[in-house]
Computed example of a mutant assay.
Amino acid sequence: MKYYSYIIPRDYGFAPNPYFGYSTLATCKPIIRKSAQIGDWIAGYGRSGSKVHRKLVALMKVDEILTFDQYWDDARFKKKRPVFNRAIFCMYGDNIYHHIEEEWTQELSHHSMTDGSINYANLNRDTQTDKVLVAIQFYYFGNNAIEIPKEFDFLIGSGRNHRIYRDEEKINKFVTYISENYEVGIHGLPYSRKSGKFAHYRGK
């Protein structure tokens, strides 16, 4: 078991996406998605300069790993496809990549161009790892990100790259603290999202 820790620079409820009963990491962080295994934990912390700096924004246990095509075709995750005539969190669906014949396609989404055409900067980065991480046990705090006890400060990510911790005793102690103090599920709204306004990310 490993613990992956990283900074979430932009939190829109897209990566990770905590909606419809699962937390999924289907875009961004291709190195984490490539190396993480079932049973590992992934934690995202607030970026520098934000109100949630060094606070825990999201924590998820990897329960399942799918390819993009498996994710797209799975009935459980059809609600995670972006929909633009419903609530704003539906617009940030992360189920956006799949093949048409032999070619990747990218749905209109946070990672596409504003006109719905493919943003190749995002597509090429995201699909370099054909894996989607799925969690049933997750804690998403968003703008209600929590300060963690000082004894766990070493788990807080910093910089652009992720960190990996392998001390299972300490990881289990931290997870136990979270599970004893918080219910599984969603505890806040994405800290980067502006109410009622959808944003595209150009990938630069």
Rank of each mutant, 00 (worst) to 15 (best):
E107T: 12
S5H: 13
H110E: 12
S117W: 10
H98F: 03
D63A: 13
V184M: 09
R81G: 01
A121R: 14
T27K: 11
S23Y: 07
G185E: 04
A87E: 14
S48K: 10
Q106K: 05
L59P: 12
Y139M: 00
Y165E: 04
Y19P: 02
P9L: 14
S48T: 11
Y19M: 05
K131D: 00
I156V: 06
V62S: 07
S109D: 05
H98E: 00
R125S: 11
D94P: 10
D74L: 04
Y71R: 02
K29Y: 15
T114E: 15
I88K: 09
G188F: 10
N95G: 04
G39V: 06
H98T: 02
Y19T: 05
D74S: 01
T24M: 07
Y177K: 00
S48R: 10
N144S: 14
G203L: 03
L56W: 06
Y97G: 01
D40S: 09
M60D: 04
K173D: 08
Y12M: 06
E147N: 12
Q37A: 08
W72D: 00
A26V: 02
Q70T: 05
P149K: 04
I42H: 11
T129Q: 04
G46P: 13
Y6H: 15
K131Q: 07
D69E: 02
I146M: 10
I100E: 07
S192C: 15
T105Q: 06
L155D: 02
K55R: 12
Y139G: 04
S109R: 08
A26L: 03
P190A: 02
W104Q: 01
L25I: 11
Y4P: 07
D74A: 01
K61W: 01
F14M: 07
R125H: 11
T176R: 13
K78V: 04
N144L: 12
I100F: 06
G39K: 09
G116R: 07
F14D: 13
I156G: 03
E101H: 13
I7T: 15
R47F: 12
G203E: 03
R10L: 15
I146F: 12
W41C: 05
I146H: 11
Y3N: 09
E169F: 10
K197H: 15
Q137K: 15
M113V: 08
A199K: 15
S179A: 13
A43T: 08
L56D: 03
S158E: 11
R163L: 08
K61E: 08
A121L: 15
R163A: 06
